[in-house]
């Protein structure tokens, strides 16, 4: 009886979480795939999925933070590309030591995040336009800089380890470890710090938050800087992983990160969202990619599926309201 009650309560708690839907989705895909493919459930494949998903997980966690704060950042993929390029170039062309190059790369990332915040907050340009423009700007810079020739000859053993090309103890890789610390750190910060609360308050209702004494501007700055920083981290890991940095590195990752975050329960109007959900969303997208690989499906399906998933998630988020259309109109006030 007691056990049953506990189970029921746990289930109710779990279903109330923003990440419940995506968790269910991941579980179902796992179960189905383990029957559908003999290879899927092998430890090699699972480790592979985890290894691949680490990059997107970091970006998705960053995107979830931005969305929770009521913003959006479409420039993360481009920033990742540029920062990877900066690190690679410094090592290959100037002989900067690896960690020096990483530091400079991260400084660039933070700088671009700050620039986003400046444009959005002080020029009052809508966040998605500002970061979309930043995407074009940064990606263009990278193209000009590389002149179509990828950066090569910068890779070292350490950098490859960082990129996850070698497994550490227990088969895990460096990006997984880094992603783990970032995710756990982000969850703890959101749960237990003043910033976490102010973030959600700002995203939910900036006017009331300001009246309550929350420094809304500082919070907004922080989210774009954090987002830029995490994009920079991903850029460096990708540079280590790919051993060449092409001008298209990280292309389209912002869409995947956004898809992962909203699959994980984030909404574009801010205030709601979950790091864990976004991470599971990233996992789900990687699994879809893995399935496409396993079955030899045409890779183009992936883009299409991500787009369709976005449409379905947005639609289903509104479905209860739509079913009730006659009773409650989704109109403005009045």
């Amino acid at each position: 009886m007691n056990a049953l009650g506990f189970a029921r309560r746990s289930a109710r708690w779990a279903f109330a979480q923003p990440w419940s839907g995506i968790a269910l989705f991941v579980i179902v895909v796992f179960v189905v795939m383990s029957f559908a493919s003999p290879v899927f459930l092998t430890s090699i494949n699972l480790l592979n999925i985890l290894n691949q998903s680490a990059f997107l997980m970091i970006l998705a966690a960053g995107m979830a933070i931005v969305l929770m704060g009521g913003g959006i950042d479409l420039s993360v993929g481009a920033i990742a590309g540029l920062v990877g390029g900066v690190a690679a170039w410094l090592i290959a062309e100037t002989g900067t030591p690896l960690y020096g190059a990483i530091l400079v790369g991260l400084v660039v990332a933070v700088g671009l995040g700050t620039l986003n915040a400046l444009i959005i907050i002080h020029l009052r340009i809508p966040d998605f336009i500002a970061t979309l423009a930043m995407l074009g700007f940064v990606r263009g810079l990278l193209h000009i800089w590389t002149e179509g020739v990828p950066f090569i000859n910068y890779s070292s053993n350490d950098f490859r380890i960082l990129g996850g090309l070698f497994r550490l103890i227990g088969g895990i890789t460096a990006p997984e470890v880094i992603a783990f610390f970032i995710i756990v750190g982000a969850i703890l910060i959101l749960l237990f710090t003043k910033f976490g609360r102010h973030l959600r308050a700002t995203g939910d209702n900036p006017a009331i938050a300001r009246l309550s004494g929350v420094n809304v501007i500082r919070t907004k700055y922080t989210i774009y800087i954090v987002s830029g920083f995490l994009a920079g981290v991903v850029g460096i890991l990708l540079a280590g992983r790919l051993m060449t940095v092409q001008a298209n590195m990280g292309l389209g990752m912002e869409i995947k990160a956004l898809a992962a975050a909203i699959m994980g329960g984030a909404v574009l109007t801010g205030g709601r969202g979950s790091i864990l959900g976004a991470v599971l969303g990233a996992l789900a997208l990687t699994i879809i990619q893995n399935i496409i690989n396993l079955f030899g499906i045409e890779p183009a399906w992936e883009t299409l599926v991500v787009g369709a998933i976005i449409l379905i998630v947005v639609f289903s988020g509104k479905a209860p309201e739509l079913l009730n259309l006659a009773r409650r109109e989704p109109r403005g006030p009045g």
Partner: peptide, 11 residues
Amino acid sequence: VTLGSLGVAGG
């Protein structure tokens, strides 16, 4: 919505 359509049409 149009971001989703972008993905679908591009794919």
